[in-house]
Design a protein around this nucleic acid. Structure first.
Length: 470
RNA sequence: GGCGACGUGGCCAAGUGGGAAGGCAAGGGUCUGCAAAACCCUGAUCACGGGUUCAAAUCCCGUCGUCGCCUCCA
C-alpha cells in the first residue's frame, strides 16, 4: 500500500512517489514575523507536523524546511512605529513563535532559513531571471514578467486574461503587465537594504521561498505546503520564478490546508479577528488543539469556538481513559479475551494506516483508535490486569505518538512529588468513609478537586489523577 | 464578475455507487453511601429540486446557502 496525497496542481489524489526513494524533501511556508502568531498559523504548522510525523512513521527520511520572512514592509512599518530596530523585532517574534510551536508539540524543522540569510542566493536568482528575459528592472525595482511564463496560473486555475488586474488595488503604471510581481524592491531612505546590481533594496516576498528551496532542498522538491490562501499569488509566483530559472518542474505535490475560522470569518492579522497562540494556551491544552485539527480533514475549513475546543478536550480525555491501569485485585481476563484485545490492536493499527495513507485522513484514523479505546475499557471493566492491558495500550500510545498527541504527561515529577501527600489524604478519607462520615469525606474530595486532583472511588479503593493537564 | 471549496443526527465529523465510522452532548440502565469514571442501550428521509443507474450521501444538471482566493495573509 502506498500513500496518496491530494495535489492542488492536478486537483487529484496521487500516489506519493518521491524524487529519491525513501526520502522526502518538504518545504512549508512559515510566517512573516511582525507580530504574535495566531492559532491559524498553529493549525497550518500542526497539519504539516502531522504529515511529517506520518511520513516518518511510514519509513521516510524527511528533510523539512520552514522559513521565516524576517524582512518586509510590515516588519519595517511596525518597527518604525515602535522606534525599534526591525531585526530586533523580527528576532523576538521568531523566538516567540518557536516557543509556541514547541508548546504545541510541533517538531522543529530540519532547517529554519530566514530571508535575510539568503541574500546571495536571492540576488543570484534574480540575476538569472533578468539574463533569461524573465525579469526587468525599473527605477531600482525588479519585476517578474508573467507573460514570459507560458503556464502562469496553472496552480490556481486562472488565466492571465481572466484576472481583473487592479480589481482591489491600484495598478502600478511602471509595470509592463499589472500582474507582474516584485522580485526586488528599491530601498527608501532609512530602510534596511542590501547591495544588488540594480541598486540597494530588499527582496520581494515570493523570491525568498524560491531561493530557500533551491539552497536547502535543491531544484526539485517533493512536497510544498502552506495555507490555501497562499495558492495565489504566492505559490503561483514561486512556481513561475523557479521553473523559469531551472527549466524543471519544481514541487511534485502542492499541499494546502484549509483555514481556521473564528465566528464564521477567516482569522487574519490584517482584520484583527484572531486568537494568539499565547492566549489560546492560557485557556486550553496543546492536545485539545491537535485533537481539533485531527478530527477534521486538513483541506477543509476549520471552525474554532469554545464549545468545539471543549469537545476536543473531552475527546482527548477519552483517549487517555484507555491508558489507565487495570483494577487492583482482579484475576485477569481469559486468554481468549486477551487474544481478542490483541486482535483489536492489530486491526486498529491497520485501519489507522489505511486511513492515513488516504490523503492523511486523520478523522478516520482517530475513529479506529477509539475502537481500541472501547476494547481496552471493556477489558478493564471485565477484570483485566495492567499486564493484560499493556500490549494494546502500547499500540494506542504508538498511534497517538504518530499524530503528535501526548497522552501521558511528559513530566510527571509533579505527580510523583504530590503522590505521598495525596495518598495520605486518601487514606484518611477512606477511614472517614468506613465510619460513614460522608460529609467529611466528600469535603476532602471537593477540596482536592479545587486543586485539580480528581478522586475516583472504586470497589477496590480510591484513585486520583490531575483533572487538567496539557 | 472570474476561479475554487463546502453543505451528513443537538454540536464536531469520516465515508465519494451496493451495510450511514467515530467523538462531544442528551436520555435510560449497570456499578456506587453519594459523586465521578467505565461499561451496556437509545437516535439521520446525508441542503433542496430534477436526472443517470438494477442500485446515489456518493455521478450529472439546476437552485439555495456558507466560506476562501482574485491585495498583504497559514
Amino acid at each position: 500500500m502506498s500513500i496518496k496525497i491530494y495535489n492542488t496542481l492536478t486537483r487529484k489524489k496521487e500516489e506519493l512517489q518521491t524524487l529519491e526513494p525513501g526520502k522526502v524533501r518538504m518545504y512549508v511556508c512559515g510566517v512573516t514575523v511582525y507580530d504574535r502568531a495566531h492559532i491559524g498559523h498553529a493549525m497550518s504548522a500542526m497539519v504539516f507536523d502531522i504529515i511529517r510525523r506520518y511520513l516518518q512513521y511510514r519509513g521516510y527520511e524527511v528533510r523539512y524546511v520552514m522559513n521565516f520572512t524576517d524582512v518586509d514592509d510590515k516588519i519595517i512599518q511596525r518597527a518604525n512605529q515602535r522606534g525599534e530596530d526591525p531585526f530586533t523585532l523580527s528576532e523576538r517574534y521568531i523566538r516567540e513563535y518557536q516557543q509556541n510551536l514547541a508548546d504545541l508539540n510541533i517538531l522543529p524543522a530540519t532547517v529554519n532559513p530566514r530571508a535575510t540569510n539568503e541574500m546571495a542566493q536571492i540576488i543570484t536568482m534574480i540575476n538569472g531571471l533578468i539574463d533569461g528575459g524573465y525579469a526587468y528592472s525599473v527605477d531600482g525595482d525588479v519585476y517578474f514578467r508573467v507573460k514570459m511564463d507560458e503556464d502562469y496560473g496553472r496552480l490556481s486555475g486562472r488565466q492571465l486574461d481572466e484576472m481583473q488586474a487592479g480589481a482591489r488595488i491600484e495598478v502600478d503604471e511602471r509595470k509592463e503587465n499589472p500582474l507582474d510581481f516584485a522580485l526586488w524592491k528599491a530601498a527608501k531612505p532609512g530602510e534596511p537594504a542590501w547591495e544588488a546590481p540594480w541598486g540597494q533594496g530588499r527582496p520581494g516576498w515570493h523570491i525568498e521561498c524560491s531561493a530557500m528551496n533551491l539552497h536547502h532542498l535543491g531544484e526539485q522538491i517533493d512536497i510544498h505546503g502552506g495555507g490555501n490562501d497562499l495558492i495565489f499569488p504566492h505559490h503561483e509566483n514561486e512556481i513561475a520564478q523557479t521553473e523559469s530559472l531551472t527549466g524543471k518542474p519544481f514541487a511534485r505535490y502542492w499541499v494546502h490546508n484549509g483555514l481556521l475560522n473564528l465566528s464564521g470569518e477567516k482569522m487574519s492579522k490584517s482584520t484583527g479577528v484572531l486568537i494568539t497562540i499565547n492566549d489560546y494556551l492560557t485557556q486550553h491544552s496543546a492536545n485539545a488543539f491537535r485533537m481539533l485539527v485531527l478530527t477534521s480533514a486538513y483541506r477543509n475549513p476549520l471552525a474554532f469556538s469554545n464549545e468545539i475546543i471543549e469537545q476536543a478536550e473531552r475527546g482527548v480525555e477519552r483517549l487517555q481513559s484507555a491508558l489507565r491501569p487495570g483494577m487492583p485485585g482482579t484475576d485477569g481476563i481469559s486468554s481468549e479475551a486477551e487474544r481478542n484485545l490483541g486482535k483489536q490492536a492489530d486491526a486498529t493499527r491497520a485501519a489507522f494506516i489505511a486511513a492515513m495513507d488516504d490523503d492523511f485522513n486523520t478523522a478516520g484514523a482517530l475513529g479506529s483508535m477509539f475502537d481500541l479505546v472501547r476494547a481496552l475499557n471493556q477489558a478493564r471493566a471485565d477484570g483485566a490486569t495492567s499486564g493484560d492491558l499493556e500490549p494494546a495500550q502500547a499500540t494506542l500510545l504508538e498511534l497517538a505518538g504518530v499524530l503528535g498527541l501526548r497522552l501521558q504527561p511528559e513530566d510527571d515529577s509533579g505527580s510523583q512529588a504530590a503522590d505521598p501527600f495525596i495518598g495520605l489524604l486518601l487514606d484518611l478519607r477512606q477511614d472517614l468513609r468506613k465510619q460513614k462520615l460522608f460529609d467529611l469525606a466528600d469535603g476532602i474530595r471537593q477540596r482536592l478537586l479545587d486543586l485539580d486532583v480528581l478522586v475516583e472511588d472504586t470497589k477496590e479503593g480510591s484513585s486520583w489523577r490531575w483533572s487538567k493537564r496539557a
